[in-house]
Simulated assay, not measured.
Amino acid sequence: MGVTEWLGRCPLVAILRGVRPDEVEAVAAALVASGIVIVEVPLNSPDPIASVRRLAARFGERALIGAGTVRRREEVAAVAEAGGRLLVTPHAAPELVREAKARGMVTMPGFLTPAEAFALIDAGTDALKLFPAEAGGPATLRALRAVLPPEVPLLPVGGVDAQSLPAWRAAGAAGYGCGSSLYRPGDAPETVAAKARALVAALAA
Results as ranks from 00 to 15, higher is better:
V39R: 00
A93E: 15
L120F: 00
A119L: 08
P42V: 11
A193F: 03
L64P: 12
V39F: 04
L16D: 08
A198V: 04
L96D: 15
P166L: 08
G124F: 03
P138T: 09
M1H: 10
R62S: 13
L64V: 08
P11C: 07
L155Q: 10
R62Q: 15
P185E: 12
S51E: 06
L7N: 10
A115V: 12
A201F: 00
G68T: 09
A50C: 04
A115D: 14
G2R: 11
V27W: 04
I15Q: 04
G124P: 12
E190Q: 15
A171P: 00
A93F: 13
W6V: 02
W6C: 05
D126P: 05
G84W: 06
S45L: 07
A14K: 00
D22T: 00
L87E: 13
R53C: 01
A26L: 05
I121S: 09
A170L: 13
A92P: 14
A123L: 10
A67V: 02
G136V: 07
D187C: 04
V147L: 11
L154K: 05
A194K: 15
V152L: 11
S51Y: 05
S164T: 15
L16T: 04
R145N: 11
V97G: 14
V157W: 00
T4K: 13
S45I: 07
A26Y: 03
